[in-house]
Amino acid sequence: MITISLTKKNMLLGACGLFILAVVGIGLFFLYLNFAFPVKHATGTHLAVPDQYTDCVTCHTKVSAQVTQDWREAKHGVTLVKCVVCHGEPDGKGSIPFMATPDPKLICSRCHDPAVVRMEAKYGNSADCYSCHAYHQNPVHSNAYETRVPTTQTTLDQPGQGF
């Protein structure tokens, strides 16, 4: 025969148990959601079309329309700096590694080395170049709109660093 006495202590224990169950339940829910609908998908492998490896735009104007059009409208597109110059070729040949997000230390400085050195001397090391240089005058494709940091600064001057 089971008897449960409804003392204050038992009720408190029950409430604690329910709370822990709820927290664990919500945790498991999000664990499942991220497993079933991942935010970031696994990196795939590019299809093989050897004669079209340097003609990225033909397909990518359809399968990544925004990125391709951003490139075409930006300085790099206007001056016809082709995809492979920064992203490498899908077959992995050539000196540029094939990657969706080129490493600025490796790629940007190939052409913009003097500017990178100057910027680093003035402002120190930055994790990447895109977060600023996509937004203002040189919208190389990137999600600058999403990564931008609002500022209250109204002048270019930085305290302690003369222009």
Partner: peptide, 21 residues
């Protein structure tokens, strides 16, 4: 056809969703 071959894993493998393209 090339892109869908890639999606199906016949020629390389894409893990993108339909709506990503």
């Amino acid at each position: 056809k090339l892109a869908h071959d890639n999606y199906n894993g016949k020629d390389g493998k894409s893990y993108r969703l339909c709506v990503d393209c």
